[in-house]
Nucleic acid binder design. Structure first.
Lengths: 180, 180
DNA sequence: GCCGTCATGTAAATAGTTACATGATTAA
DNA sequence: TTAATCATGTAACTATTTACATGACGGC
């Protein structure tokens, strides 16, 4: 049984929603699961092609009058099965995030206190705006997709983002106090 | 002014400690900053070579009697300057982590409740052992490096890991309650 | 004699981003 | 008429991991 990378499964998963084109997959990603998975067109289009080649999805080109060609993809039986099997698999790896801020702070003894302070202040600002973004996405899901059964799971992942971000903000504040 | 990727700066930074060989850099990474930056030999050795080529480090081969050759690297003046300049730069990007667990949970409506529950339980276990690892590293730093001025910064980054991991554990528990 | 650790390194494969190319529609 | 959005795709580059190759030393 052939295996794919997680990015491929992510695309497979999105094809179960009403996002059916490369373009709308990208949009959905940016709006809904951007906080734990992001992807570029350079991966989406070749992956869609691969899914069709492997019989996990089907494509039909719709040339609606005027509009440029739109390629609509839909999962096959086999595609849905492949997705389900992947979800069932136990977690392979939980990679640690790569954090440039922590990397810089780790070597903070080579810098002035002021520099370290502004590094942390900048980071706190980024985290705060990220938290606000999560809240906005959350509202969007509650309003636009509340009827869908997926919505509950989507909100769980957002809750994760909010909690972890909040913890990071608190760390910034605590560390700023102790570094001065 | 040539720029490098963060992995190169990480190696540059480690060369300010008493880790001077490719092998010991890897060890230091695995023990101390593994939670926010990891790296393989396939990157370390070529990067060290590059640093020497660019005049940021110097290498001398020490053939201590018997033992295999050991290549010891030390930063040049220019190398230290390059490191300091990088730390000063404002944060370029704060990439969101890629989280396989959240990705699977996001598509959880295609799975049975039991599967989602065990996904979360597995994740919680992983997070708990990760938390324990952080505490062990913390103790290691307090005992072995407490005199070093770097130690304070190292402990800050560990505190981050602990706080964020703790928040994730709490999310697991909360989500498990709500998913059942 | 074998296993674990010390030690260095390369080649190939995989993953992923960025920049580029193209062109239609729509709203200001 | 011009900018934003819709829409698809490729090529080149960068980053990173994995697997392989090699070999010495020390302890059991």
């Amino acid at each position: 049984m052939k295996t794919y990378n997680n990015t491929t499964y992510a695309i497979l998963g999105i094809l179960t929603t009403d996002c059916t084109s490369g373009y709308s997959i990208k949009q959905f990603m940016d709006q809904s699961l951007n906080h734990f998975w992001k992807i570029s067109y350079g991966q989406i289009y070749p992956t869609l092609k691969l899914l069709v080649e492997d019989g996990l999805a089907e494509m039909k080109s719709t040339s609606s009058s005027g509009r440029a060609d739109k390629n609509e993809y839909s999962l096959t039986e086999q595609g849905l099965m492949t997705l389900k099997k992947w979800i069932e698999q136990p977690i392979a790896q939980v990679p640690a995030e790569r954090n440039e801020v922590l990397l810089k702070l780790f070597f903070g003894s080579h810098q002035s206190r002021d520099h370290n302070v502004s590094l942390l202040e900048d980071y706190r600002k980024i985290l705060e705006s990220r938290y606000a973004t999560y809240e906005a996405i959350e509202q969007g899901i509650r309003h636009n997709h509340n009827e869908q059964q997926d919505a509950m799971y989507w909100l769980f992942t957002l809750d994760y983002g909010k909690r972890v971000t909040q913890a990071a903000i608190e760390w910034c504040e605590y560390t700023l106090k102790n570094i001065r």
